[in-house]
Design a protein around this nucleic acid. Structure first.
Lengths: 118, 118
DNA sequence: TGAATGATTCAAGGATGATTGAAATATGGA
DNA sequence: TCCATATTTCAATCATCCTTGAATCATTCA
């Protein structure tokens, strides 16, 4: 993830509806969610969710694939991980004060680290 | 860092000039940089840098303090760390696929983790 | 006080982003 | 083929953000 992509990702996540969409898709996992289901959850019009989904897709944070009549959207884990990495490494130069809290979170969710730290 | 603050932080970082400012201030450390020095580095007008600095200050990512004639800006490490944490924990629900790359970065910059992982 | 320096504020503009509803596209089933 | 479903596209409007230059404020020093 380079600076250009990071700028686009930050812009994409700076809008409430879009942030909600990403959170829902991360929780939904690899199966993803259909545009209509997202629209219902987020409580916006089909037209509106389509606009924001296209915006997110263009930023690379989510991906789309047609499945019968529905279009299924999934979170693009690599990009999200890349954004976290960019923020810690490229933007913040790996400053311990900034990355320390991230290490705590990482320790709680990555199995390998649980072993070494607990 | 709650969602409202995160949205503001993402918006603040989605602009090239502002992202550059944050990067410069993180590298500058606790001593920070004066508005004029930042304007020179980033190559924008005093008026323009002032606009973006105010935007960043309002988002909580940087702080300002007058020192004689200059106004010194510093990166607010807590907020930046909070943003990384929000992205990993609140937004991405601690998904290993997303947090794993962050763990690598964290391992490289936090002294305690270097011992346990190398 | 008066001049110089460093920075902010203000107003005007142009550009970009968000929302809305109507129309269009694509798929699946009767 | 015809209809219903799922979603996107389009055009118009409104709001927000970015940029620019001139004017203003705060500080230091002669």
């Amino acid at each position: 993830m380079d600076q250009r992509q990071a700028l686009g990702a930050f812009a994409a996540l700076s809008q409430e509806t879009r942030l909600q969409i990403v959170r829902l898709l991360v929780v939904a996992g690899p199966e993803g969610m259909a545009a209509g289901a997202l629209a219902e959850k987020v409580e916006v019009s089909p037209s509106n969710i389509s606009f924001h989904l296209k915006e997110l897709e263009h930023s690379g944070l989510i991906a789309a694939q047609r499945q019968s009549r529905s279009i299924i959207y999934t979170a693009h884990y690599e990009s999200l991980g890349g954004l976290v990495r960019f923020l810690m490494e490229d933007c913040c130069s790996g400053h311990p004060e900034i990355c320390a809290p991230a290490a705590e979170v990482a320790a709680c969710c990555t199995p390998k680290m649980e072993e070494t730290l607990r």
